[in-house]
Structure formats: structure tokens, C-alpha cells
């Protein structure tokens, strides 16, 4: 068994392309809604549930979880997510610990941090982008991620 492992490692070292083809980072995505319910103590609590019952106007929470499942240090991790069709980004809702969060209002061609993102209006002048104009989000993870490390990044939208 040990010999087999060494053999595989040897092959991988000899063929770098195979090594790089192995995914070090795993990314999973989920969508949830927040529901206010009453707990056993009679207190109103907000819980997250799968987005099974969703009507126009409701708020959805998208969470992307990145995770270093490989054996190498992952550097310069950048997560990208387009705002889904039929939904509108909710201002200030993007989250991600240890990340620089950038937004795009032009289909992902250019990004800026929220509050600094501008668009050129019909009159040719630049103005701050509206939340519903956001098309893409980007999270730049500041720290390198060791094997086993990971984190959550996400945002909220309102279903149109």
C-alpha cells in the first residue's frame, strides 16, 4: 500500500499537468430563505430553510462554501458569482470573512467595492450603481488556504 502511494506520487511528480488537474479547492453553493418562527421558549427566532417555498418579493440567501480539499496551499482564491436571473441584489448583503468583496454592474467586465461602484447614466455622467444593477459579485480571499481550510461567502437577493 505504501509502495503504491509512493509510485503514484512519483508519477504525479513526473507529470505536473496531472497534478494541476486535481482540484484542490471544492466549491459548493446553496440557496436558503429566512423564516420567522416561534421556538419552544415562545421566542420569535429567524431560521434558515431550503428555498422550497418562494414567491416574488421574498429574500433569498446564497452561500458559497470554498474548501481546500487538497494537499497543497491554495493561493489567490477568487470566487465569482453572477446574480441569478429574476433576482435583484440587496444592497450591503454581500458577506465573506477575510475577503475583499467586489461588485460588477456590467456583466463581470469590471469590478469595484460596494459604494465605489459607478455606472454611466443615459446622460453620460457617472453615478453610483443601484443594487438592482449589480450583475456579478467577486470575493478575493486575502489569506492563503491551507489543506482543510475554507470559508463561506455569499449574498442576498430579492426574487422579482
Amino acid at each position: 500500500m505504501k509502495n503504491l502511494g509512493i509510485s503514484i506520487l512519483a508519477i504525479l511528480l513526473l507529470t505536473p499537468s496531472l497534478l494541476w488537474a486535481k482540484e484542490v479547492i471544492d466549491l459548493t453553493s446553496k440557496v436558503e430563505i429566512e423564516v420567522v418562527t416561534t421556538n419552544e421558549q415562545g421566542e420569535q427566532v429567524t431560521v434558515r430553510q431550503p428555498a422550497s417555498k418562494v414567491l416574488p418579493g421574498e429574500t433569498l440567501i446564497y452561500t458559497n462554501t470554498y474548501h481546500n480539499v487538497g494537499d497543497d496551499l491554495a493561493q489567490n482564491i477568487v470566487v465569482n458569482n453572477a446574480v441569478p436571473a429574476h433576482t435583484s441584489y440587496i444592497a450591503g448583503s454581500a458577506f465573506g470573512d477575510g475577503c475583499e468583496i467586489l461588485l460588477s454592474a456590467d456583466g463581470g467586465k469590471s469590478y469595484a467595492s460596494e459604494g465605489e461602484l459607478t455606472v454611466v447614466g443615459d446622460d453620460g455622467t457617472s453615478r453610483p450603481a443601484l443594487p438592482e444593477e449589480i450583475t456579478h459579485l467577486r470575493w478575493i480571499v486575502r489569506e492563503y488556504q491551507k489543506p482543510g481550510d475554507g470559508g463561506d461567502v455569499g449574498f442576498r437577493v430579492r426574487l422579482q
Binding site: Y62, A74, N76, V79, N81
Partner: peptide, 13 residues
């Protein structure tokens, strides 16, 4: 309503 995210990263630069 569909969503898909992507991640880019580097290993050893």
C-alpha cells in the same frame, strides 16, 4: 432560478 459560482486559485503560483 439557477445559480452557479466559480472559484479561481493558484497552487505554487
Amino acid at each position: 432560478i439557477n445559480n452557479n459560482a466559480t472559484v479561481d486559485y493558484k497552487v505554487n503560483g
